[in-house]
Simulated assay, not measured.
Amino acid sequence: MNEQKAWALNGFLSLLLLLAATALSVVLLVNGSIFIGIALLCIVTVLASGITVVQPNQAMVVTFFGSYAGTIRNSGFWLAIPFSIRKHVSLRVRNFNSAKLKVNDIEGNPIEIAAVVVFRVVDSAKAMFDVDKYEQFVEIQSETALRHVANKYPYDLFEGEGYSLRGNSEQIAEELSRELQERLSVAGVEVLEARLTHLAYSTEIASAMLQRQQATAIISARSKIVEGAVGMVQMAIAQIEQDGVIVLDEERKAAMINNLLVAIVSDRSANPVINTGSLY
């Protein structure tokens, strides 16, 4: 089923012609031409049943005795096919906020996820005839696509490379939009945007995952500190040897390296120890 243009005549012109035909039928009835006057009046009544109004950003799907006769997309006052059934389909851009779904990511961790889908109808015939209640169809397919995308990626990447739901929101949104478009094209719906609005671990594992994230952050920070500390120690020893302030043997170098690393890497302020010599 594909959308096609329906026959329609300007409503104001049609109304003027119908009024003229009505006046003519009255004149004929008064002058004794009863049969012609009644026949003309019946024709006017039949044609008047096709008068309709199309609002802006709406389409009117016309069916005539069970057959699809086309769609009127232009807003205004129109004369459509008489005795036809006309149904309005909104062409406006609409939002759909999914409920918070509880799903498992690719690692099996239970998470809560929700999304907003921005869509509009681009083919009124498909939306009306190819699916039953296209609004409900959009809702169900959106939740299905959201579950499918959530099952393909981890919530967060603690090691390795790839995409994650939390760290790659733009890529996840693009894939969700693409999959939604594939599912909703049968309903004549265009997906303009799809984005995650809620993403969190489920309550039963939220505290454990928070501790894991904190531990990962601490390890990463410590690695940077150690890397910087080693560089600083190398620079300090090289500068001392270059300036020739003191001559350091291997034992003194080891002691200095140990003291500097402890002072830099430690998360507490270093307390200097002054050697005053022996009391005896």
Rank of each mutant, 00 (worst) to 15 (best):
M1R: 04
M1P: 10
K5Y: 13
L15Y: 01
L15S: 05
A21W: 06
A23T: 04
S25R: 00
N31D: 12
A39G: 07
L47K: 10
I51C: 07
T52V: 13
Q55D: 13
Q55F: 15
Q55V: 08
V62T: 12
S67Y: 12
Y68K: 06
T71R: 12
A80Q: 05
I81F: 12
I81Y: 15
S84G: 02
K87L: 15
V89G: 07
L91C: 08
L91S: 06
I111E: 00
A115M: 09
V118Y: 03
V118K: 08
V121D: 01
K126E: 00
A127V: 09
M128E: 10
K133H: 13
L146K: 00
R147D: 02
N151G: 14
K152E: 09
Y153F: 09
L157N: 02
F158M: 09
E159S: 14
E159Q: 10
E161L: 10
Y163P: 08
E170L: 15
Q171P: 03
Q171V: 08
I172V: 15
E174T: 06
E175D: 07
E179C: 02
Q181R: 05
L184T: 02
S185W: 05
E190N: 06
E193M: 01
E193L: 04
T203L: 14
A206M: 11
M209L: 07
R222S: 01
I225V: 13
E227D: 13
G228W: 00
A236Y: 10
A236H: 12
E241A: 10
L248H: 03
L248T: 00
D249E: 09
E251H: 11
R252C: 07
A254T: 09
A254K: 11
M256L: 14
M256K: 05
M256Q: 01
I257D: 02
N258L: 06
N259L: 14
L261S: 08
V265Y: 07
S266L: 03
S269Y: 08
S269Q: 08
V273C: 06
Y280Q: 12
